[in-house]
Design a protein around this nucleic acid. Structure first.
Length: 446
RNA sequence: GGUCCCGUAGCCAAGUGGCUAAGGCAAUGGACUGCAACUCCGUGAUCGCCGGUUCGAAUCCGGCCGGGACCUCCA
């Protein structure tokens, strides 16, 4: 079976055809580093990590790139507030981002270009847009001529006419068209960079296309990000790249739905915001929660819903560790597992779910099926080869989903306590058995 | 005002024209257990409402009700 991906640009589910055989070149819009990330920011961090893991599992070589926006008004404001410089703020929150990404189980081993490292590329990209007549300079500011791109709006399902009608009264009369967006901004406050248009800063929309152009040198396979970026950010990226290269930069555009809190969009001003670092629950439970809804649907966060998934994760983890420990106790951990028809069926269901536009909820259903099956085998006697097979399958699923049960081999002490407990129960020494049981529970073995 | 999305059991959620509408959490009955926990087996749905298309609709079309997003460099 081939992978199928819903392409926001065509509004259809398409079979994935890589540009280069067995390779996936993908780019995901990263954060503006002026604050700790919130749980909504974590959704793409988790989801696209799974996308990468699954492609890799399917034998693709994945070149994953996700940027850091480290030049931005919000960073400047934050630097002034904290009486420091922009670089300090950016560095601090880049570190914090990596820490949060690891907390939620996502890999941080990928290329993460920063705007400050690509300034000359961004400037020359803008220059070329001006040369070709797609952009114009006014008083040190450079704007993109939206009218020059007939397809403008195709990604987000709008057209220039609708946008014009809906546009609020624009104070900025410098623009030829209120919909034109800023490529370069002449500024006095905060860090500035020299350019042929004067001292200033780049607008937000050029960095991704300039980086993709520089790093990949051509159109990429997948461009991803949150729905909130579809308009105007991704629309503007496409417009710029159509202007220079005549294509939409990426063959497949993927967008993850928004995360809401209590059915409303997260809002800092209304105090409805939860930072990843402040989430006082099991992060694997949070990851499971995120993956339990299809990525394109909005997802609603509440403490109750999260606890629901934290419990779910506890159960999965318990089954995994019980399978692991029982095999360990029987010295069967290093033997090869047997994959019976039931395990094969579960495995196949899991892969098919993910091939179908990354249907993680259905993949998780197969994980539950595996949990049930493993538990049944634990209760039966002499099923070690199948238990070992189940454990191997758990490992495959966990690797793809980025879940980590953190179970390691029993120590000598662990084994000794376990044996003692078994004996105490056999000898009907229940007081002793209860004390040992408590110990085993503390060690997470029971 | 313009554009668009969603409404499936107490909660989360899959399914988007066709066998008895997946799965999980919670609840509850039973089995297992020295007791318990864990686990296993069982128990739950007029698919927001009304109408239409069709041999057949949760799935398509229309209307209504309810919730939400975007049109402001918010993932």
């Amino acid at each position: 079976m081939r992978m199928r991906i819903y392409n926001t640009l065509s509004k259809r589910t398409e079979t994935f055809e890589p540009i280069h055989e067995n390779t996936v070149n993908m780019y995901v819009c990263g954060p503006t580093v002026y604050n700790y990330i919130h749980i909504g920011n974590a959704r793409p961090v988790i989801f696209f990590d799974v996308v990468r893991r699954f492609f890799e599992h399917q034998g693709y070589m994945v070149n994953f790139v996700s940027n850091f926006t480290d030049v931005d008004d919000k960073i400047i404001t934050k630097a002034i507030e904290d009486e420091t410089d922009e670089m300090t703020i950016a560095n601090k929150f880049i570190e914090a981002f990596y820490e949060d990404a690891r907390r939620v189980g996502s890999s941080t081993k990928y290329l993460a270009p920063r705007v400050t490292e690509y300034m000359s590329s961004i400037i020359s990209y803008i220059e070329r847009l001006v040369e070709k007549g797609f952009a114009y300079e006014k008083n040190g500011n450079v704007y993109f001529r939206v009218d020059k791109i007939p397809e403008y709006g195709a990604l987000s399902g709008r057209n220039i006419e609708d946008l014009r009608e809906g546009a609020r009264v624009e104070v900025d009369t410098e623009k030829e068209n209120p919909l034109d967006f800023t490529l370069w901004k002449q500024t006095e406050q905060g860090i500035t960079y020299p350019s042929p248009f004067g001292e200033g800063r780049p607008g937000w929309h050029t960095e991704c296309v300039a980086m993709i152009h520089d790093i990949f040198g051509e159109k990429i396979d997948i461009h991803g990000g949150g729905t909130g970026l579809m308009f105007p950010h991704h629309e503007n990226e496409i417009a710029q790249h159509r202007a220079l290269a005549g294509n939409a930069i990426a063959n497949y555009w993927m967008h993850n739905g928004q995360l809401n809190i209590d059915e409303k969009k997260m809002s800092k001003s209304e105090g409805r915001i939860i930072l990843v670092k402040d989430l006082d629950h099991d992060y694997m439970g949070y990851r499971l929660f995120t993956l339990s809804t299809h990525y394109r649907s909005p997802i609603d966060y509440s403490d109750d819903i999260l606890i629901n998934h934290v419990n779910e994760w506890q159960k999965i983890k318990r089954t995994y560790s019980q399978t692991f420990y029982q095999l360990d106790l029987a010295d069967q951990l290093d033997k090869k597992g047997v994959h019976d028809s039931q395990l094969s069926k579960i495995h196949q269901g899991f892969i098919e779910a993910l091939e179908d536009d990354f249907n993680t909820p259905n993949a998780i259903t197969e994980l539950h099926n595996l949990v049930k099956y493993a538990n049944q085998k634990i209760r039966e006697r002499n099923t070690y080869p199948v238990m070992r097979g189940a454990l191997e399958l758990f490992d495959v699923f966990f690797k793809i989903l980025g879940l980590n049960p953190e179970v390691s081999r029993l120590t000598k002490t662990d084994r000794a306590i376990y044996m003692e407990w078994t004996n105490a129960r056999k000898n009907r020494e229940f007081d002793k058995a209860d004390r040992l049981r408590e110990k085993l529970q503390e060690r997470g073995i029971l």
